[in-house]
């Protein structure tokens, strides 16, 4: 299990990196944390002609609070930094709470936010969180910069809107799912074979209740159940304007299952994912309602 030959570049500035990607286009693979790419290179499942190592670019690793109360995260920011960031904990607690579910700490020490998102594994946590939080991705190229919403960025299994020559450089997350004292409540859950594995099914739910417990806004995002993270709009609609109680959750759970059309793989069948999706969605909503007593794990 040894890599095939490739050319290696380690640009030391963003401009240089974008130039390099422009030059090599489809032939180049970006090496960030390497936690997904390197196994594929070792197994020769990936045989890039050119490896563009972006780890020596100094200004892509940051977590910056934005004026609107959200965060801008550099693509090269290690997942472990996000996990430990007090800004993340204060501003987007659901993100902080979900981080330990990504692999193991040695993986998160290297794995980057941008890498996970660009890799676009449909069972991965970060793409789903960005989806749920309605973030924005900044895509840079030698000649251009554009901003995409996750719904436009994730196309299918391991496939994104990144064009040859483009690099994901920043992830912007708006101020949603704030701390429990705020009106947004949240829940994150996944079912894995073992802790740290990719999710068979996962859910991120964000919920806004008024003083009387009536749902004003809801966002239910499922992952591991389709080629990309998916929002379950019909279930969200069922919540809107209702007092979120047991029978409503029952309905929502059923609707989520009905709406899912997952694929089967070695870890779980389509039928299992479809049904468990509803269960997990309900659990995240229950956790959201009772956030202070909420449990982050399945």
């Amino acid at each position: 299990m040894k890599p095939a030959k490739f050319e290696y570049f380690a640009p030391t500035s963003l401009a240089e990196a974008l130039e390099l990607l422009h030059e090599h286009g489809d032939d180049a693979k970006v090496l960030a944390g390497g936690q997904s790419l390197m196994p594929m290179i070792n197994m020769r499942l990936a045989r890039p002609k050119v490896v563009a190592d972006i780890n020596r670019i100094p200004d892509l690793d940051y977590i910056s609070p934005t004026p609107d109360g959200g965060l801008a995260i550099g693509a090269l920011t290690r997942q472990r930094s996000v996990e430990k960031s007090t800004d993340v904990k204060a501003r987007i607690p659901v993100l902080a709470a979900a981080m330990p579910s990504i692999g193991h700490f040695q993986i998160r020490n290297r794995g980057t936010v941008g890498g996970s998102i660009s890799h676009a594994d449909p069972s991965a946590e970060l793409p789903a969180l960005c989806f749920a939080l309605d973030g924005e991705f900044v895509l840079s190229s030698a000649s251009n910069q554009r901003v995409l919403k996750p719904v436009d960025f994730f196309i299918s299994h391991l496939t994104t809107a990144l064009e040859p020559g483009e690099l994901l450089t920043e992830i912007r997350l708006p101020a949603r799912a704030l701390a429990p004292s705020e009106e947004w409540r949240w829940g994150f859950q996944e079912v894995c074979r073992r802790q740290g594995d990719f999710a068979m099914v996962g859910a991120v739910s964000l919920l806004k209740l008024d003083g009387g417990g009536i749902c004003q806004s809801a966002c239910i995002t499922m992952f591991g159940v389709a080629g990309t993270p998916v929002r379950i709009r019909r279930a969200e609609e069922a919540l809107l304007g209702s007092r979120v109680n047991g029978s409503v959750l029952q309905d929502v759970s059923r609707i989520v299952s009905e709406e899912l059309d997952p694929d089967s793989d070695i870890h779980a069948s389509s039928a299992y994912r479809k049904e468990i999706g509803g269960v997990i969605a309900r659990r995240t909503l229950e956790a959201a309602i009772d956030r202070r007593n909420g449990d982050e794990t399945a």
Binding site: R194, Q195, D197, F198, H267
Partner: peptide, 12 residues
């Protein structure tokens, strides 16, 4: 691979 053939970790 070890992603598919699962052996117990300390948490199991």
């Amino acid at each position: 691979s070890f992603m598919d053939y699962l052996v117990p970790t300390s948490l199991d």
